Simulated scan of single mutants.
Amino acid sequence: MTLALGSVTGVTALSLSSTAAQAGSIERACMSSGRRAANGALCGCIQNIANMTLSGSDQRKAAKFFAEPHRAQEIRQSDRASDEKFWDRYREFGAVAQNACG
């Protein structure tokens, strides 16, 4: 799934933070990760990109990587077709989030 640059640019017009009730699984995991760089604006931006690029189930799976980074490695190395397809979507999400939020 490839997003046009216009879609990425449009993200900057979105509100970059959510209320706790509206926060998605990626944003919640980001905020509770304990990482120094984690803040409402960054985590909200990442969640906005996740909403544009990942399904709800993909988001829940990816959110677990914040607490269990080794799980990401296991999925990346998996031979299961479903894991390979997820990893392709996840990499695309990561690239778009880095460009838009980083």
Rank of each mutant, 00 (worst) to 15 (best):
E74M: 06
A23T: 07
S55I: 01
A29N: 01
T9E: 14
N99I: 15
L14P: 09
I49A: 12
A29C: 02
Y90K: 00
F93A: 06
I75L: 11
V8A: 13
K64R: 11
Q47M: 02
R36Y: 05
T53K: 11
S25L: 05
A81R: 05
I49G: 09
S18Y: 12
C30G: 04
M31R: 14
I75P: 05
E74K: 07
A67E: 04
P69N: 11
N39G: 09
Q59E: 06
L5K: 13
Q47Y: 04
F65K: 02
S33M: 06
A13I: 04
E74L: 10
K61Y: 00
T2Q: 03
A4C: 10
A81F: 04
T9F: 15
Y90M: 03
W87N: 05
S15R: 15
G40W: 07
S32D: 12
E92S: 07
W87S: 07
V96A: 07
D88I: 06
A100Q: 12
R80G: 00
S32Q: 14
R89K: 14
V11F: 15
Q22W: 08
A37V: 10
Q59V: 02
L54N: 00
A97T: 12
L16P: 07
E92K: 02
D88Y: 00
V96W: 09
L14Q: 15
F86W: 04
C43A: 14
L16A: 10
I46T: 09
A81W: 01
R80V: 03
A20P: 05
A4D: 11
R36N: 08
E68K: 08
E68V: 07
S7F: 12
K85G: 00
R76P: 00
A95C: 07
L5W: 10
